[in-house]
């Protein structure tokens, strides 16, 4: 399994024609897609995607696996994902540490209660998914707006416990750490320092919408703010450089307007001294 490196951009249908006609800008090292949006689509956009798949590595970032749901795991769907990944030679598949279905889909990411029961439940399902896919998967720390009153641990402890019990990788979303730090009033730097470095394989960064002083909505609809860039830089210093994606899913501007942010990821990556080269003081 070879994961991409450098800086990437979440592929949007709105940008397909530009990328197809003008070529992929050098600054974009890889793309990310949601398999759900492409696995049974044909037509022009699908043909354009197939061309791009030849030109850059891709990451698959799923939406509907519902890894924390109490509904039975949709194994037919997991097998469809397996076929999609194999067909397009996509090595890295990540999903959200959340749930989005209970007796049917809700099509949005909902917060899991941070309890031992949830840890065990998610871990069993991750193991089953990894078995069907024949590969490790990465789970992403998800942005939330409410917390279960019966939680028995904080979010960072929950994330660590799930990764350990499931023996899977961490897809660290820096913006989500910031969003949750505002929504639940914790220190995002302390949160980051609690995470297991050895399990990180991939990072996300994005913009969001400040709805109130204590409420941030994770819209992916604006530029990345300075606080989030600082957290990303801190993560690179702390953990080393990992392939990092810019997400932009709403208020989508022309492609060229997103490239400076992709370039900024790359600059931060380039100025990071590799962890292995650091001298202990």
């Amino acid at each position: 399994m070879a994961y991409p490196s450098g800086a990437g951009l979440g592929l949007r249908q709105e940008h397909l024609s530009t990328l197809f006609d003008d070529g992929v800008p050098d600054v974009i090292n890889f793309f990310e897609i949601a398999p759900e949006n492409w696995m049974s689509h044909g037509g022009r956009k699908r043909q354009q995607l197939n061309t791009l798949l030849e030109q850059r590595p891709f990451v698959a970032h799923g939406l509907s696996l519902s890894i924390g749901s109490s509904d039975p795991l949709d194994e037919d769907f997991v097998e469809d994902i397996a076929r999609f990944l194999d067909k397009h030679h996509i090595d890295l598949y990540s999903e959200h540490l959340s749930w989005c279905s209970a007796n049917g889909h809700l099509y949005d990411l909902l917060p899991l209660p941070f309890t031992e029961q949830t840890v065990d439940h998610v871990a069993q399902r991750v193991k089953r998914v990894q078995h069907i896919l024949g590969r490790r998967i990465a789970l992403e720390n998800t942005s939330f707006y409410m917390a279960a009153p019966h939680a028995s641990m904080d979010e960072a402890s929950f994330v660590c416990a799930v990764l350990e019990a499931a023996d899977c990788d961490l897809h660290l979303d820096i913006n989500n750490v910031f969003v949750n730090s505002v929504n639940f009033g914790f220190d995002p730097y302390q949160y980051l320092q609690a995470l297991p470095t050895k399990r990180i394989v991939y990072m996300h960064t994005a913009g969001h919408f400040r709805e109130a002083e204590d409420l941030v909505i994770d819209t992916h609809g604006a530029e990345v703010i300075d606080d989030v860039w600082q957290l990303l830089n801190f993560s690179y210093q702390q953990f080393g450089v990992f392939p990092t994606l810019l997400e932009r899913d709403f208020n989508i501007p022309p492609l060229t307007e997103l490239l400076p942010e992709v370039l900024h990821i790359k600059r931060l990556q380039n100025q990071t001294v590799p962890v292995t080269a650091r001298v202990a003081t």
Partner: peptide, 9 residues
């Protein structure tokens, strides 16, 4: 509604 499909489409 019985929304059992994982695909938005």
């Amino acid at each position: 509604g019985k929304l059992h499909s994982p695909l938005f489409k």
